[in-house]
Amino acid sequence: MTGRADRAEGADTAERPRRRPGGRTARVREKTLKATLELVARHGVDGFRYEQVAELAGVHKTSVYRNWPDRDQLVSEALLQVGERESPVEDTGDLRRDLAGLLVSHSVALLTPTGVALQHALQPGAASEAVKGVLDAYYTERVAAVRERVEGAADEERPPPGVDTGFLLQMLSGPVHFHRFRTGRPLPRAEAERIVDVVLAGLRATAEREDQP
Results as ranks from 00 to 15, higher is better:
187 L>Y: 01
114 T>N: 08
47 G>T: 08
175 P>F: 01
43 H>F: 11
176 V>I: 01
8 A>G: 08
150 V>A: 06
182 R>A: 14
98 D>A: 02
126 A>K: 14
104 V>D: 03
37 L>T: 02
65 Y>H: 13
37 L>R: 06
91 D>N: 06
46 D>E: 13
122 L>A: 14
139 Y>P: 01
101 G>D: 07
146 V>E: 03
44 G>N: 07
154 A>W: 04
200 L>K: 10
156 E>N: 12
24 R>Y: 15
73 Q>D: 07
81 Q>M: 09
204 R>V: 04
202 G>A: 13
104 V>Q: 03
198 V>S: 12
38 E>F: 03
106 H>R: 15
213 P>S: 04
35 A>T: 11
149 R>V: 06
11 A>C: 09
19 R>I: 15
84 E>H: 11
78 A>W: 01
44 G>I: 05
157 E>Q: 11
212 Q>G: 09
97 R>T: 09
34 K>C: 12
90 E>W: 04
204 R>L: 07
119 Q>N: 05
90 E>K: 10
69 P>D: 06
116 V>N: 07
117 A>K: 04
113 P>S: 09
169 L>M: 13
163 V>R: 00
193 E>W: 07
170 Q>S: 13
162 G>A: 00
139 Y>E: 12
111 L>E: 07
209 R>S: 14
160 P>C: 01
15 E>G: 13
95 L>N: 00
46 D>Q: 14
162 G>P: 00
26 A>S: 10
18 R>L: 12
42 R>N: 05
64 V>C: 01
118 L>H: 11
120 H>F: 14
9 E>G: 13
80 L>C: 11
111 L>D: 02
86 E>S: 14
99 L>I: 00
66 R>D: 13
6 D>E: 13
173 S>V: 11
37 L>V: 05
27 R>M: 14
50 Y>K: 12
174 G>N: 12
101 G>C: 10
140 T>Q: 14
113 P>G: 08
18 R>F: 09
78 A>R: 03
143 V>W: 07
87 S>D: 02
134 V>Q: 00
158 R>L: 02
202 G>T: 07
60 H>S: 15
116 V>S: 14
59 V>H: 06
88 P>T: 05
79 L>P: 03
161 P>L: 00
83 G>W: 03
171 M>V: 10
161 P>V: 01
20 R>P: 12
24 R>M: 15
96 R>G: 06
204 R>E: 08
167 F>V: 04
152 G>C: 07
128 S>Y: 09
160 P>Y: 01
54 A>M: 07
95 L>A: 00
54 A>Q: 07
26 A>D: 09
87 S>N: 04
42 R>A: 13
162 G>L: 01
59 V>C: 09
191 E>P: 01
46 D>T: 14
188 P>D: 02
104 V>Y: 01
12 D>N: 12
85 R>K: 10
